[in-house]
């Protein structure tokens, strides 16, 4: 079995992706509070839901990216001339 090596760059990239998604979720909460005329305290009190949404979006983005890279590899293997 091969060892799985996660490079520092990959870790940093994934962290940045999650941070962006967290910021997006936070903005979503901000938008919701304005739209439903809710209490500004929800920016803090509902942070667990924001965190959950960001993790959900991250998982979703990971699935999309894995699917994309899988399809791309498949396409490349078909394009490779037969030896």
């Amino acid at each position: 079995m091969r060892d799985l090596i996660i490079k520092k760059e990959i870790l940093r990239r994934e962290f940045i992706i999650w941070m962006v998604l967290f910021a997006l979720s936070f903005v979503l909460n901000l938008f919701a509070i304005i739209k439903y005329n809710s209490n500004w305290m929800e920016l803090i009190t509902q942070i667990h839901i924001v965190l959950f949404i960001s993790l959900f979006l991250y998982a979703f983005s990971a699935i999309v990216r894995i699917l994309y890279s899988g399809l791309r590899n498949l396409y490349r293997s078909f394009k490779k001339p037969a030896e």
Binding site: E42, Q46, I49
Partner: peptide, 10 residues
Amino acid sequence: PPPPAILNLI
């Protein structure tokens, strides 16, 4: 009391 705005939005 209404649910939190974020849940309302979802």
